[in-house]
Protein backbone atom coordinates (compact mmCIF):
# COMPACT_ATOMS: atom_id res chain seq x y z
CA UNK A 1 0.00 0.00 0.00
CA UNK A 2 1.49 3.30 -1.01
CA UNK A 3 0.82 6.21 1.28
CA UNK A 4 0.78 8.86 -1.42
CA UNK A 5 0.60 12.56 -0.78
CA UNK A 6 -1.86 14.79 -2.58
CA UNK A 7 0.92 15.57 -5.02
CA UNK A 8 1.19 11.89 -5.92
CA UNK A 9 4.72 11.46 -4.63
CA UNK A 10 5.47 8.28 -2.74
CA UNK A 11 6.03 8.67 0.98
CA UNK A 12 8.64 6.29 2.29
CA UNK A 13 7.77 4.89 5.69
CA UNK A 14 8.67 1.71 7.47
CA UNK A 15 9.40 -0.04 10.70
CA UNK A 16 9.55 -3.30 12.56
CA UNK A 17 6.93 -6.02 13.11
CA UNK A 18 5.58 -4.73 16.42
CA UNK A 19 5.52 -0.96 15.87
CA UNK A 20 8.20 -0.24 18.43
CA UNK A 21 10.30 1.37 15.72
CA UNK A 22 8.71 3.47 12.97
CA UNK A 23 10.48 5.78 10.55
CA UNK A 24 9.88 8.11 7.64
CA UNK A 25 12.34 8.93 4.86
CA UNK A 26 12.23 12.42 3.41
CA UNK A 27 13.92 11.65 0.12
CA UNK A 28 13.82 9.00 -2.57
CA UNK A 29 15.95 6.14 -1.21
CA UNK A 30 18.80 4.97 -3.38
CA UNK A 31 18.76 1.67 -5.28
CA UNK A 32 19.09 -1.43 -3.16
CA UNK A 33 22.28 -3.39 -2.62
CA UNK A 34 22.20 -7.06 -1.70
CA UNK A 35 25.01 -7.80 0.75
CA UNK A 36 26.34 -11.37 0.84
CA UNK A 37 28.85 -10.86 3.67
CA UNK A 38 28.88 -13.36 6.51
CA UNK A 39 27.76 -10.77 9.07
CA UNK A 40 24.67 -9.82 7.11
CA UNK A 41 23.83 -13.47 6.48
CA UNK A 42 24.24 -14.37 10.14
CA UNK A 43 22.13 -11.43 11.30
CA UNK A 44 19.45 -11.64 8.63
CA UNK A 45 19.27 -15.44 7.99
CA UNK A 46 20.21 -14.75 4.36
CA UNK A 47 21.56 -11.87 2.32
CA UNK A 48 21.05 -8.34 3.54
CA UNK A 49 19.10 -5.90 1.37
CA UNK A 50 19.80 -2.26 2.05
CA UNK A 51 18.92 1.14 0.59
CA UNK A 52 21.08 4.15 1.41
CA UNK A 53 20.17 7.74 2.20
CA UNK A 54 21.50 10.79 4.03
CA UNK A 55 21.09 10.37 7.78
CA UNK A 56 19.35 13.73 7.89
CA UNK A 57 16.59 12.35 5.67
CA UNK A 58 15.62 9.64 8.17
CA UNK A 59 13.06 10.65 10.79
CA UNK A 60 12.43 8.26 13.66
CA UNK A 61 8.71 8.51 14.37
CA UNK A 62 8.99 5.98 17.18
CA UNK A 63 12.22 4.57 18.57
CA UNK A 64 11.06 3.10 21.85
CA UNK A 65 12.53 -0.33 21.15
CA UNK A 66 15.37 0.62 18.77
CA UNK A 67 18.59 -1.06 19.85
CA UNK A 68 22.07 -0.85 18.32
CA UNK A 69 24.81 -3.47 18.14
CA UNK A 70 28.35 -2.70 16.95
CA UNK A 71 28.87 -5.72 14.74
CA UNK A 72 32.42 -4.67 13.89
CA UNK A 73 34.76 -1.76 14.51
CA UNK A 74 33.35 -0.18 11.35
CA UNK A 75 29.62 -0.33 11.78
CA UNK A 76 26.60 -0.78 13.99
CA UNK A 77 23.29 -2.49 13.24
CA UNK A 78 19.93 -1.25 14.46
CA UNK A 79 17.07 -3.59 15.28
CA UNK A 80 13.92 -3.79 17.38
CA UNK A 81 14.57 -5.33 20.77
CA UNK A 82 10.95 -6.45 21.11
CA UNK A 83 10.31 -8.22 17.80
CA UNK A 84 13.86 -8.69 16.44
CA UNK A 85 13.31 -7.01 13.07
CA UNK A 86 16.52 -5.84 11.40
CA UNK A 87 16.31 -2.19 10.36
CA UNK A 88 19.52 -0.17 9.95
CA UNK A 89 23.22 -0.42 9.13
CA UNK A 90 25.35 2.61 9.91
CA UNK A 91 29.08 3.27 9.61
CA UNK A 92 30.59 4.29 12.95
CA UNK A 93 33.15 6.71 11.53
CA UNK A 94 31.56 9.13 9.10
CA UNK A 95 34.15 11.87 9.46
CA UNK A 96 35.19 11.36 5.85
CA UNK A 97 31.69 11.46 4.42
CA UNK A 98 31.81 14.19 1.77
CA UNK A 99 28.07 14.71 1.60
CA UNK A 100 27.35 14.24 5.29
CA UNK A 101 26.52 11.21 7.42
CA UNK A 102 24.65 8.37 5.77
CA UNK A 103 22.57 5.45 6.96
CA UNK A 104 21.21 2.37 5.22
CA UNK A 105 17.78 0.87 5.81
CA UNK A 106 16.65 -2.69 5.18
CA UNK A 107 14.43 -3.04 2.14
CA UNK A 108 12.13 -5.43 3.99
CA UNK A 109 11.35 -2.87 6.70
CA UNK A 110 9.87 -0.42 4.20
CA UNK A 111 6.07 -0.42 4.15
CA UNK A 112 6.21 -0.23 0.36
CA UNK A 113 9.42 -0.69 -1.61
CA UNK A 114 7.68 -0.31 -4.97
CA UNK A 115 9.69 1.94 -7.19
CA UNK A 116 13.02 0.81 -5.77
CA UNK A 117 15.26 -1.39 -7.87
CA UNK A 118 18.29 -3.50 -7.05
CA UNK A 119 21.55 -1.91 -8.16
CA UNK A 120 24.19 -4.43 -7.20
CA UNK A 121 25.27 -7.44 -5.20
CA UNK A 122 28.19 -6.69 -2.88
CA UNK A 123 30.66 -8.90 -0.99
CA UNK A 124 29.89 -11.71 -3.41
CA UNK A 125 33.31 -13.25 -2.63
CA UNK A 126 31.95 -13.87 0.87
CA UNK A 127 28.63 -15.39 -0.19
CA UNK A 128 27.38 -18.57 1.36
CA UNK A 129 27.85 -21.84 -0.51
CA UNK A 130 24.26 -22.94 0.08
CA UNK A 131 22.63 -20.77 -2.60
CA UNK A 132 23.16 -19.37 -6.09
CA UNK A 133 22.66 -15.70 -6.90
CA UNK A 134 21.15 -16.66 -10.22
CA UNK A 135 21.14 -14.86 -13.54
CA UNK A 136 19.38 -11.66 -12.51
CA UNK A 137 21.46 -9.32 -14.61
CA UNK A 138 22.50 -7.27 -11.60
CA UNK A 139 26.12 -6.11 -11.16
CA UNK A 140 28.20 -8.12 -8.74
CA UNK A 141 31.01 -6.63 -6.65
CA UNK A 142 33.59 -8.29 -4.47
CA UNK A 143 34.53 -7.01 -1.04
CA UNK A 144 37.30 -5.03 -2.73
CA UNK A 145 34.70 -3.07 -4.64
CA UNK A 146 35.75 -4.57 -7.95
CA UNK A 147 33.07 -5.73 -10.32
CA UNK A 148 33.18 -9.49 -10.85
CA UNK A 149 31.53 -11.78 -13.38
Amino acid sequence: MTDATAGGEQVWTGGCLCGGVRYAIDTHPEPISFCHCSQCRRQHSHVGAYTGLPRAALRLLNDATLTWYASSDRARRGFCARCGAGLFWEALDQSGAEDGPRITVTAGSLDDASGLRVERHIFVDHKGAYYDIGDDGVERRASTGETVE
Binding site: L17, S45, V47, A49
Partner: peptide
Amino acid sequence: GQCRRFHGHIGAY
Protein backbone atom coordinates in the same frame (compact mmCIF):
# COMPACT_ATOMS: atom_id res chain seq x y z
CA GLY B 1 5.99 -9.98 4.06
CA GLN B 2 6.44 -10.89 7.69
CA CYS B 3 9.75 -12.67 7.07
CA ARG B 4 10.91 -9.81 4.87
CA ARG B 5 10.21 -7.33 7.63
CA PHE B 6 11.80 -9.54 10.30
CA HIS B 7 14.91 -10.38 8.30
CA GLY B 8 15.19 -7.19 6.25
CA HIS B 9 14.84 -9.29 3.08
CA ILE B 10 13.71 -12.86 2.41
CA GLY B 11 14.21 -15.51 5.08
CA ALA B 12 16.20 -18.69 4.49
CA TYR B 13 15.45 -21.59 6.81
